[in-house]
Amino acid sequence: MNRINQKLQENKKLLSIYFTAGYPSLNDTVSIIQNLEASGVDMIEIGLPFSDPLADGPTIQASSTQALKNGMTTEILFNQLSDIRKSVSIPLIIMGYFNPVLQYGVEAFCKKCEEIGIDGLIIPDLPVDVYHEKYQGIFEKHGLINVFLITPQTSIERINFIDSVSKGFIYMVSSASVTGSQSGFGDDQKHYFKRIFDMGLKNPQIVGFGINNSTTFNQATEFSKGAIIGSAFIKFLNDNPVDNIQQFVKSIR
């Protein structure tokens, strides 16, 4: 069974952390992952940096720009991760934009992920329709779970379609926004979280965007299986050494 599906069966709220590979330094990737696992994080999203990250706010943009300046490439990331399964056992997801994947070759990319022991992908600009028509077979052949986003504006019909194509969890974007743009959740969001919960989808939901502390983590997971933290963690890394990651994770739960 895929590590993501196994993890989702655990009887707890999941904490997933996003970081941009190659940031703050090119070779921090492995030690960030190891520190996150040692701190009790349930799942990790490894960001493959892109020059034009459309869905990201200033914090993740800046980390991507810096990572590329540091020399990060798809090949280097794969090399850094080649032995990761010797030391890390929690689910690992690569999050990146579609163009770098296309240039690597979708099949070659998926094959490499399988070899390394990557469990899933999040590609925000690969729409579910295109995935379903063209790429689902390739992803599944290599044991990869592809994760789709929904937002407060996503129609019921489309949520049901996304649920039918998904094989792991649904990434529930907390509000209509790019990453990192909010502080705290209001009634609108709580209604939305509850509304989706009440749909009784076959895939559990994990909330992302705008989670930055234990309060927002608890709010986000009241009606969902877990939450993803990205920008807040990148900000922490701006000011703190990788060895202090435990401090950040402890502040969340």
Binding site: S51, L54, Y97, N99, V101, Q103
Partner: peptide, 22 residues
């Protein structure tokens, strides 16, 4: 340019071998 994706469409675009837009 090579085939790739920029601003939401598949087209020809100038990019690195790694798919970063130049």
């Amino acid at each position: 340019g090579k085939e790739g994706i920029i601003h939401g469409c598949k087209t020809l675009l100038m990019q690195t071998n790694d798919g970063q837009i130049t």
